[in-house]
Simulated scan of single mutants.
Amino acid sequence: MPINKNTCGLLKYVVVEKLKQKLLESVEPIISLDKNILQRWIKLMIAGTRIKTPDNEIFEFIRTNYFEFALMFVDHKGNIINLPEKGGLLDQPLDWIIFLQMFKVAFVEELAKQDKGR
């Protein structure tokens, strides 16, 4: 059966909750992280710095699963030119949209800082 509102409405509540929980597990590291901390970490990643704190595991997870791929989705000015999944903006995974928005801001700030130094 196709997955749509009607067929999903036929599922038992327990099944829906388990599916919802499984889906949220994959985006949990980005969604649960304070946005200011994520912004600071992205700036550190752009600068090539690593951290040595209790959060190092999360930092490394974000660096290897998001940051290393982020440059494929932005141009040299920090504009988002590609999306991780096919479809439009609303078809994208929430964790990627949050990360790319934060990456864009940090990337543009870094470019502005470098231009000032010239």
Rank of each mutant, 00 (worst) to 15 (best):
P2F: 15
N4F: 08
N4E: 08
K5Y: 07
N6S: 05
T7F: 08
G9H: 02
G9N: 00
G9R: 01
L11M: 02
Y13F: 04
Y13H: 01
Y13V: 05
V14N: 04
V14F: 07
V15Q: 03
V15T: 06
V16G: 03
V16E: 01
E17Q: 15
L19P: 02
K20V: 13
Q21C: 12
L23N: 13
E25D: 14
V27D: 00
E28F: 06
P29E: 00
P29W: 01
I30Q: 02
I31M: 06
I31Y: 10
S32I: 00
K35I: 07
L38C: 09
L38V: 15
Q39I: 09
R40W: 05
W41V: 12
I42N: 00
I42E: 00
K43C: 14
A47V: 14
G48Q: 12
R50T: 14
R50K: 10
R50M: 08
I51G: 10
D55A: 09
N56K: 11
E57M: 12
E57K: 13
F59K: 02
F59G: 09
F61V: 04
I62W: 00
R63G: 03
T64V: 08
T64L: 03
T64A: 03
Y66I: 01
Y66W: 01
E68Q: 06
F69I: 04
A70N: 03
A70W: 04
L71F: 13
M72P: 11
F73Q: 07
V74I: 11
D75Y: 09
G78M: 05
N79A: 13
I80C: 09
I81N: 02
E85H: 14
K86M: 15
G88T: 12
L89S: 09
L89Q: 07
L90M: 08
D91Q: 05
W96E: 05
W96L: 10
I97K: 13
I98C: 07
Q101W: 13
Q101I: 15
Q101V: 15
M102Q: 14
F103C: 05
F103N: 00
K104Y: 00
V105P: 00
A106V: 03
V108A: 03
E110W: 07
G117E: 04
G117N: 06
G117P: 03
R118M: 06
R118L: 12
